[in-house]
Computed example of a mutant assay.
Amino acid sequence: MRPDYDVVYPPDEAETAGSHEKLEIQLLLQAIYQAYGYDFRNYAYDSIRRRILHAMQVMGERTISGFIPRILHDPRQLFLLLDLLIVSVSEMYRDPSMFKEFREKVIPFLRTYPYIRIWHAGCSRGEEVLSMAILLEEEGVYDKARIYATDIDEGALTLAREGQYPLSIMEKFAVNYRLAGGTRDFSEYYTVEHNEARFRPTLLRNVVYASHNLVTDHSFNEFNVIMCRNVMIYFDRQLQNRVHQLFYDSLAMFGFLSLGSPETVSNFAGSDCYEPINEKEKLYRRIK
C-alpha cells in the first residue's frame, strides 16, 4: 500500500552550506549594525560576501560568525574589518568624458548662480573632489563654491584631507585631466615630496570633509550639484531607492546629479523628475 505522506529527501549539501553561509553573513551584518550603527545589511549580497571572505583570509578568521565575538568585545577588530568591507577606490577625473561634459554643459548654468553648493557623496580618498576643485578653479567659479565631501570611511577622509597621493599614479591622473578638458599643465597643481605628490592646499580651501552614511543618515543641506559615482552599484535595489530619495530631497530645483557609468536614475520611482543632460555620461538635471 502506498504510504499516506510525501517522501522528504535530505537537502543537497552545497545548498545547505550556502544557506548557512548566508545566515552567518546576515548575523554578522546585524551585529555590526546593532552594536556600532554601520549598516551593510542592504548591500548587494554577492559583493559583501566577497569582501567578507577576503576579510577572513586577511584577518585569519576560520568562520564568518567568528567575527561576531571579535568585533563585539574589541572595537579595534571592528575597524580592521571595516577597512576591508568598505570600498575606497577612485582616481582623479575618472571617466574623463563625464568631466568634459560637466565643464561644457553644467558650468554655464553654475556661472549664473550667486553661490554654488556641491555634494560629493562617497568621496573616498578625495581624488574626484580635487578634480572638481581644479575644474571650478579653471572655470573661474571656485571662489563662490563650497564642496561638501562625505564618506563613511574615516580613514579615507583623513587621507583626503591631506591631498597627498603616490607620485607613481600622477601620469595616469594627468592623462585623465587632459581628456577631461584641462587647460593647464597638470603638474602646476602639486609639488613633489620624496615619492609623493602633494596638491596645493589652496585647492581645498572651499572643501568641507565630513562623515556621512548614505544608508542611515539624512539630508543635511540643499545642493546645486550632487556627485555620487560608482557607489550605488554595491547596494541592493531597496537601498538604491532609499539613496535616490535622499538625493532628490537634497537637490535644488534644476540642480544636477552625476552618477557612475553603471548607474542610472531609471529604476528610481521619481525618475521622471529628471531630464538627461547626457544619458551616456549619467549626468541628469532635476526638473520637478
Rank of each mutant, 00 (worst) to 15 (best):
I233E: 08
L203M: 07
Y93L: 02
E154T: 10
T191Q: 15
R103H: 01
Y148Q: 00
M227L: 13
E279G: 07
I226F: 10
A44C: 04
Q245V: 02
F173M: 01
R62W: 05
N230T: 10
N206I: 00
G163F: 05
I152V: 06
S90M: 09
E24N: 05
N278Q: 03
F254A: 15
E13D: 03
E24K: 06
L85M: 15
L214H: 08
E263I: 04
L204K: 06
P166K: 10
L283Y: 15
I68W: 02
L130T: 03
Y43C: 07
V207F: 08
F256H: 14
T264P: 09
G60V: 05
H120C: 01
D272L: 09
L53S: 07
I277Y: 14
H54D: 08
G18M: 04
V87R: 06
F99R: 09
P201H: 05
T183R: 15
Q34S: 15
K288T: 03
D95S: 09
K172P: 02
H194L: 11
G182N: 04
H218A: 04
A269Q: 14
L27T: 10
I287H: 13
A149K: 07
R198F: 03
R62T: 02
V129P: 04
I287P: 14
N42P: 06
D6C: 03
S65H: 12
L136Y: 11
F102I: 08
A121E: 04
G255L: 11
A17F: 01
M253Y: 10
H54M: 08
Y274N: 08
N195R: 13
R229M: 09
P166F: 14
S258R: 10
P75E: 14
V7R: 05
R2M: 00
P201E: 09
L28H: 07
E138F: 06
L136G: 14
Q57F: 06
A210R: 05
L81A: 08
N267E: 13
N241P: 06
A156I: 05
N176F: 13
L167V: 06
I52K: 12
E101Y: 06
P114E: 03
P108Y: 10
P11V: 03
Y43M: 02
H244D: 09
M56E: 06
D95Y: 11
R198A: 13
T112M: 13
G270V: 00
G270D: 02
R62P: 14
R117E: 06
L84A: 04
P96F: 15
L204T: 04
E279C: 06
Q26V: 02
F199K: 06
D4F: 10
Y189V: 08
Y165E: 08
A156F: 05
R146Q: 14
Q245H: 13
E279Q: 13
D39W: 11
P75S: 12
A145S: 10
F79T: 14
I147Y: 13
D46F: 06
V215D: 11
M132T: 14
R50F: 09
V129R: 05
F256P: 02
L257Y: 11
P276G: 02
R184E: 15
A252Y: 05
L283I: 14
S168Y: 04
E281M: 15
F254C: 00
Y38R: 00
M59T: 09
R51E: 13
M227A: 12
F199W: 00
S124C: 12
G163V: 03
G270L: 11
L23H: 09
C123V: 00
R198S: 00
P108C: 08
R51M: 12
A269F: 14
S90I: 09
N221Y: 15
